[in-house]
Simulated assay, not measured.
Amino acid sequence: MALSTLDRSARTYIAGHRGLVGGAVLRHFARIGFDDLVTRTSAELDLRDPVAVETFFAEQQPATVVLAAAKVGGIMANSTYPADFLSDNLRIQLNVLDAAARHGVTKLLFLGSSCIYPKYAEQPIREDSLLTGLLEPTNDAYAIAKIAGVLHVQALRRQYGFHYISAMPTNLYGPGDNFDPVGSHVLPGLIRRFDEAARVGAESVTVWGTGTPRREFLHVDDLARACVHLLENYDEPEPINVGVGEDLPIRELAQLVAEIVGYRGELAFDTSKPDGTPRKLLDVGKIHSLGWKAQISLRDGLSETYRWYRQQLAAGPLERG
């Protein structure tokens, strides 16, 4: 039984609606009948600015908040700009969480990342692995910011009794992803590289690392469904994992992307580039016990994402807001 069905007529603020996650959450919430959805672009509201955030919450008075706004990127971006990833994400979280508490937000979901867990955590990774070991150094600054968000949510619950929760998704993909050749995550980066190689007839495509690390991938529309499910069925201080419960080696992922894109050349692996965490598979027993499971297969999700990517290319240069 649900703890409390969300009032779909109450004002709901989706922070970060122009991003991969926020966009999917916005689409899903609108589709299932939320009729007072509030959004702001980063140009309209800089969430790093405490005065601007305070003014927004005072004027809009949302009842529910999904905090999907974040500065995100792949291994290269995280390694190159750790100070930016730490500072920007800390400020976004601090401003939104404190303003939500001051202005009576009754339900809030903070979305973190599976990178909060130790690099060598026991697999599959349980929620209680948090803070039990060293982080993966290529994205430790981002991870520390997200850990701070989890602890902030817990502190607000403990001090004020708020029904705020945290969810830790695994690696995400889907329509609306960032396909930038420098700042993207592994999957959109592979899609772009193989698509370009297929169109020019390249003999080979180089993939970073050894291809041996294993990763789990969740379609962002499945995460959007999970957001509503958790807001209605979960009310605990501990973060909860959101994933599919299965993973595969990067080598197999690259082969699958090549197949979907139609690339028939060779795959090469640049072993001088970092692999990142050897394996990162989430234990999803807790969310399964609440009645939620991922529904979109990796092959189907990748095919849909590739179609979306090609449609965007046909419409003009890919941009992010």
Rank of each mutant, 00 (worst) to 15 (best):
V207M: 04
A224V: 12
V186L: 13
P124R: 13
G73V: 01
G16E: 08
N241M: 12
T55Y: 13
S9D: 11
A83Q: 14
G183Y: 11
D283K: 13
L302F: 00
M76I: 13
P317A: 02
G133K: 13
Y263F: 15
D270W: 08
T305K: 09
S297L: 00
A69Q: 06
A101R: 15
I92M: 12
R193C: 04
T64F: 06
A224N: 08
V53N: 00
F56S: 01
M1C: 06
T271S: 13
G19T: 04
T170I: 14
A83V: 13
R91E: 00
G161S: 01
D46L: 04
D36T: 09
A141F: 00
A101V: 01
G211I: 00
P249R: 08
F179E: 06
E236A: 04
A224K: 13
F269T: 02
D247M: 03
T55G: 07
L111Q: 08
F29P: 02
V21E: 09
D275Q: 15
E259C: 05
A121G: 09
F179Q: 05
G189E: 06
S303N: 12
D180E: 05
H28F: 15
V21M: 14
L156C: 00
P213R: 12
D222Y: 02
W208N: 08
Q123R: 12
V96D: 00
L131S: 08
C227F: 03
T138D: 04
D88A: 14
D46S: 14
